[in-house]
């Protein structure tokens, strides 16, 4: 299978009067890191929210691995292998790393109608493994996420996405409010997605970050896609000129 892993066709979204997406069509290839760029209010988050099931499009369709997909909740999206990481919304700070990794997808020992007893041992062991797999060095999976730095939190979120074998990872401004060092860590994660056979969609306002870590850049303005090129075939200046 060589077709795109995710394609959207003619996506429209209105917010009481605001036409936030005006017929967006775009393909995301397998194992490709795509940078999504655009001014404030361009519609990047809206597009991503539709893919991750937080919002529903008013018109248009989504195809995952060639099949039309009805995504009406975050669960649907996750089930299709799409994992989304936000700056703020991806972790519960009052819970431990191990518990955070499995929120909504807990390993269960005995279950009845979907409710059941947590397999705490499995949660601990697998979270240690998942964290090690993304080269994050955290000593205990029992530490509260609230005690981690912003970069470490994003690392844990990425470890979670990897652990659940997501095929597409969307990162909506994951480096907001991070220090330079922490930002570099997150950029490193984005770069390493390719080796793990994961498609990355990386939203950022920082062109340098996108050009550093992505294969392709897609630029949006006023609810439309205005540029879609390989990084090697364009330049920061060209992207800036269309925004």
């Amino acid at each position: 299978m060589n077709g795109p892993i995710v394609s959207v066709r003619n996506l429209h979204k209105w917010y009481s009067g605001v036409h936030a997406l005006k017929g967006v069509s775009v393909d995301f290839a397998r194992n490709e890191a795509v940078g999504l760029i655009g001014d404030n209010g361009a519609g990047k988050s809206t597009l991503i929210n539709i893919l991750s099931g937080v919002q529903k499009q008013d018109e248009g369709s989504i195809f995952v691995e060639g099949k039309e997909a009805a995504i009406s909740s975050p669960r649907d999206s996750m089930r299709l292998g799409i994992e989304t990481i936000y700056q703020y919304n991806s972790m519960v700070p009052t819970m431990s790393i191990a518990r955070n990794l499995f929120i909504g997808r807990e390993p269960i020992k005995y279950s009845l109608f979907g409710f059941g007893v947590l397999d705490l041992r499995k949660m601990r062991e697998e979270s240690v493994q998942a964290i090690a797999d993304v080269d994050l060095h955290l000593r205990s999976p029992d530490a509260l996420v609230g005690e981690l730095s912003g970069g470490q939190r994003q690392g844990v979120a990425i470890a979670r996405a990897m652990h659940f074998k997501s095929k597409v990872m969307i990162l909506d401004e994951p480096t907001n409010h991070l220090s330079v060092k922490e930002t570099n860590k997150v950029i490193g994660f984005v770069r390493s997605l390719k080796e793990q056979n994961v498609t990355g969609i990386f939203i950022s306002h920082n062109m340098h970050h996108v050009f550093e870590s992505c294969d392709r850049v897609v630029a949006m303005a006023r609810g439309q896609i205005v540029l879609d090129k390989r990084v090697s075939e364009t330049s920061i200046d060209e992207v800036q000129s269309v925004l």
Binding site: S52, T94, M95, L118
Partner: peptide, 17 residues
């Protein structure tokens, strides 16, 4: 776990389905 997540940080719990 869902109770704690819901009370701990609602937007994250929502986003995790």
């Amino acid at each position: 776990n869902w109770i704690r997540a819901t009370g701990g940080f609602l937007p994250a719990a929502d986003a995790l389905g």
